[in-house]
Amino acid sequence: MSLTLLFKDELKGFYKSKIMIFLWVGLPVVVLLFHLITLDTGPIPFSALIAILLASLGGTLASVMITVSIVNERKGHVYDLFFVRPVRRMDILIAKYFAVYVCVTIAALLALTIGFAYDYGTGGAPEMFLEGTLESFVISLSMLAVYTAVGVLIGVASPSVLVGVILIIYGGNQLSAVPMLLPVVFGTSSYFPLAFILGVVTTIILLTLAIIVFNRKKL
């Protein structure tokens, strides 16, 4: 019950502070600009390129967003509002996690749609770029999930916004590469499902850690 309330409230907050607009307009625009600057990407379709770009750009965005928002609210004693009320602490984090994830995923989908439209417009055959792109997009989504979870953990544990952002830049990227790299390391043939599952598992582990830290924090 309170989880859906908190989730809606987070989305409302992102909407009112215009974060959504910057994400949903900004990310596709940046991706498009990127393509215009590096015109010669060889045989890789633009949409596939976008899917790869999204994972790192969107991921960093998501984790910075969530870390900054959690640290700020911790510092501003906003969570007191919830701790004094019958709200489970883990719901606060989970609501924020999904709010950020949904926002960034929508931004990613918008960017990807533009990519498809572009490829189609420049004469690519749809089936040619669809297949590979969709797979890499799903992997991007699971990387985004890990990135966002990293953001929650760092937001909960970090003493300040600045330390949080530094930690994300140090560790966030490496950690979210796990679902991409591990299957390669083990040289498995079923790369795609394994990457996806690893992403989900890493996310759950990170979120659980964050919840434990949050529950134990002296306030």
């Binding site: 409302k12 502070s17 007191d80 004094v84 009320r85």
Partner: peptide, 27 residues
């Protein structure tokens, strides 16, 4: 219980009415 904490935070982006509505819904 109702509690006013020592240095409480607020949702600055909500109006008074929305804030009370949200807090009420939490209960």
């Amino acid at each position: 219980t109702g509690l006013l904490t020592e240095s409480p935070g607020l949702y600055e982006k909500l109006s008074a009415y929305e804030f009370l509505e949200f807090m009420g819904a939490l209960y």
